[in-house]
Design a protein around this nucleic acid. Structure first.
Length: 670
DNA sequence: TTAGGGTTAG
């Protein structure tokens, strides 16, 4: 007996796989006691070697339930969670009874697989085996439903629990956080404190995920200090994310540099914090710094890096990141490979995206959807549909895949095909249309100029239209200059989405372009009176591995004088080619000439001229605008592509525009 | 054993 306990202690002390393997070899295999075997499996799993854990499990031929529980546990939180479910089924077939130890891991696997049906079936088994009121099992149920986005199910489990511990409260807070119900989550955390339950690090971390306002963050820091958790690194890491969300990147940075012994999560948190704060260059720099220190990134760090670079829209940087990933340990990692596809899509290179897609050894729903959405964003509706047909042959599309394909139809102008997909989704796939799908259809009708039909379609909707649906209608009104319908759509939007500056600007522009200056100014005033601030537009361009940012009227670039004199010349050239400036995009009551100058100085035009000045003749120019491209800039760019014989690829907040020989891939509808 | 810091599609 003593020897067995000794052995277990030794196994737990192994901190490297090599050490564990040699210890394992020295233990007599033929007499491997189930307890020792269980410890070995658990330790292999915790050292990240599930293959060793599984190899040991499959040679043990044991009906010991602890062994089964541990191997189910080992797979539960990995990309191979499905194995947990397979093992569970096999265990039952062999007549081994599940215990209260089995279900937390089984439920975790269901959560990782994001499969509600499976989760619900596992829940049924919990009931059958009578573990519904087990506090561990119930906590796991709550967490699982939280991951599915069904926090009302989580709440039901929570309310029915005969006894709760700190994890129960914390899981419920976490379920709210996962579903964006931050205020309720935070409220529940304060209620927990009122009930006299002492917070631990997990509950603090979960509650922090609910915090989006600076004063809440500051209040919260007091709780952290009062409970002596301020030196806990996971709490500090969570605090970085919290302050980044509150717009206080400086405080986040202070936390980061205050940590003496930074772990990988600390680096990743700070990289992600920069991304959240729209400081992708800082994110990239921090990543390089981390690599120089010899810290090896994991898949999450790499995903943050991809996240940073896709915001920069630089093809060179995309290739750099792709190289980093290729050289990393992660081979055939679906999430990473899919993120790289999305990266190439967002950096404007569909060809590379497709190559990566074709090279994947396994694809999931997300991989297919990403590639389809990529075609859609670039206006390649036919390719999107073709890929969708292939997808249907191997996997059942979900509601998001349908959003992608419908929006691809709308961006590609495939009206009849879009309708067919919309009808098929419920009929053939049992996917009930949601507001997003209705928004795509409104967009589709709007593109065709069928505005009254679109409005009637909205009125017939079986569910309440949201801001996305009315926003699609308003967007269509901009293209077709329909004031009456625009006013209806805007009335809804100013209630549903009152904080969104884009809605006010759009309506104001529609008024302005129909010559209704007073109404246009009134809308600007309404926006101001509601305290909604216009997002500052900017355009970025990458030249020789360096990223340059322009705002309207920018004079910060060293080449400013040259840029403006070239711009003047270019404007003259395109005016000769037939371009007429659309002054309605400048709203202030100014002289016509001044207006024209203001229009010239839009960030899109400055970036294009900078690109023309600093790139090889005939090479393509890639720029990225943070908002929707301005109508006049869109028109001007078409002419620029003609007179300069350059291809210009512009990514805006909505989609890609490929300008070539005087026309744009969006067909002037975006 | 459970929750728990950074986590890929619109």
């Amino acid at each position: 007996m003593g020897m067995k306990a000794n052995c277990i202690a030794l196994i737990k002390q192994c901190v490297t796989l090599e050490a564990l393997k040699s210890l394992h070899a020295s233990i007599l295999k033929s007499h491997l006691h189930p307890h020792l075997c269980t410890s070995l499996i658990a330790q292999y799993a915790s050292l990240g070697s599930i293959s060793h854990a599984y190899a040991l499990f499959s040679t043990s031929h044991s009906s010991n339930v602890f062994l089964w529980n541990h191997i189910i546990r080992a797979f539960s939180n990995t990309p191979h969670s499905r194995n947990s479910l397979r093992l569970y089924s096999r265990m039952l077939q062999l007549g081994i009874q599940a215990t209260n130890f089995t279900f937390p891991f089984l439920l975790k696997a269901c959560g990782c697989l994001a499969d509600f049906e499976l989760g619900a079936r596992a829940h049924a088994h919990v009931v059958v085996f009578g573990y519904e009121s087990d506090v561990f099992v119930a906590n796991s149920l709550m967490a699982m439903y939280g991951r599915f986005g069904c926090f009302d199910f989580s709440r039901q489990v929570f309310e029915r629990m005969p006894e709760r511990n700190v994890v129960s409260w914390s899981s419920m807070v976490g379920a709210y956080a996962h579903n964006g119900r931050y205020e309720e989550g935070l409220l529940l955390f304060w209620r927990m404190l009122n009930e006299g339950i002492a917070p631990n690090r997990g509950s603090i971390v979960n509650a922090m995920a609910c915090i989006h306002r600076e004063h809440e963050a500051d209040d919260f820091c007091r709780v952290v200090i009062d409970n002596g958790l301020d030196s806990d690194q996971s709490v500090q890491n969570a605090a970085m994310g919290m302050y980044a969300r509150c717009g206080r990147i400086d405080v986040a940075r202070r936390f980061f540099y205050g940590i003496l012994d930074k772990d990988l999560v600390a680096w990743t948190s700070m990289i992600e914090a920069y991304v959240q704060a729209d400081l992708p260059i800082n994110a990239l720099e921090l990543f390089k710094q981390m690599k120089l220190l010899g810290i090896v990134p994991d898949s999450v760090t790499l995903l943050s890096l991809i996240h940073a670079v896709s915001n920069l829209a630089s093809f060179q940087l995309a290739r750099f990141v792709h190289g980093v990933i290729t050289r990393s340990f992660f081979k055939n990692h679906i999430a990473l490979d899919t993120a790289v596809i999305d990266l190439y899509v967002k950096c404007g290179n569909l060809e590379y995206a497709r190559k990566c897609f074709d090279r994947m050894s396994a694809r999931n729903l997300i991989s297919w959807s990403t590639m389809i959405s990529g075609y859609g964003m670039h206006g390649h509706g036919r390719e999107a549909l073709c890929l969708f047909d292939q997808m249907k042959a191997s996997i059942k599309p979900d509601h998001i895949a349908f959003v992608m394909v419908l929006s691809a139809c709308s961006h590609g102008g495939l009206i009849a095909e879009g309708w067919e997909c919309f009808k098929a989704m419920n009929r053939d796939f049992g996917v009930t249309p949601r507001t997003e799908h209705y928004a795509c259809m409104v967009d589709l009708l709007g593109r065709a100029g069928r505005l009254s039909e679109a409005q009637a379609f909205i009125e017939r909707m079986p569910i309440t239209p949201d801001a996305g649906v009315w926003g699609a209608l308003l967007g269509a009104c901009r293209i077709h200059s329909n004031l009456e319908t625009a006013e209806t759509a805007a009335r809804h939007l100013f209630n549903l989405d009152a904080e969104n500056p884009g809605r006010y600007i759009l309506l104001s522009n529609i008024y302005a372009s129909s010559g209704k200056r007073k109404e246009a100014d009134d809308i600007r005033a309404l926006m101001k009176s509601r305290g909604v601030r216009k997002t500052v537009g900017h355009t970025i361009i990458e030249i020789k591995n360096k990223v340059y940012t322009f705002v309207a009227g920018d004079t910060s670039n060293p080449q400013t004088d040259l840029i403006y004199s070239e711009l003047r010349k270019l404007m003259d050239r395109i005016q000769e080619a037939g371009y007429v400036p659309d002054l309605s995009f400048v709203l202030h009551d100014t002289e016509e000439e001044t207006k024209e100058k203001m229009l010239y100085a839009h960030s899109e035009k400055l970036a294009i001229v900078f690109g023309l000045l600093n790139s090889a003749p005939e090479s393509e120019i890639r720029i990225r605008k943070n908002l929707r491209v301005c109508g006049d800039c869109h028109n001007a760019t078409k002419f620029i592509s003609e007179v300069t014989k350059r291809e210009i690829i512009m990514r805006d907040a909505h989609r890609f525009h490929h300008f070539k020989a005087g026309s744009c891939s969006c067909g002037d509808y975006w």
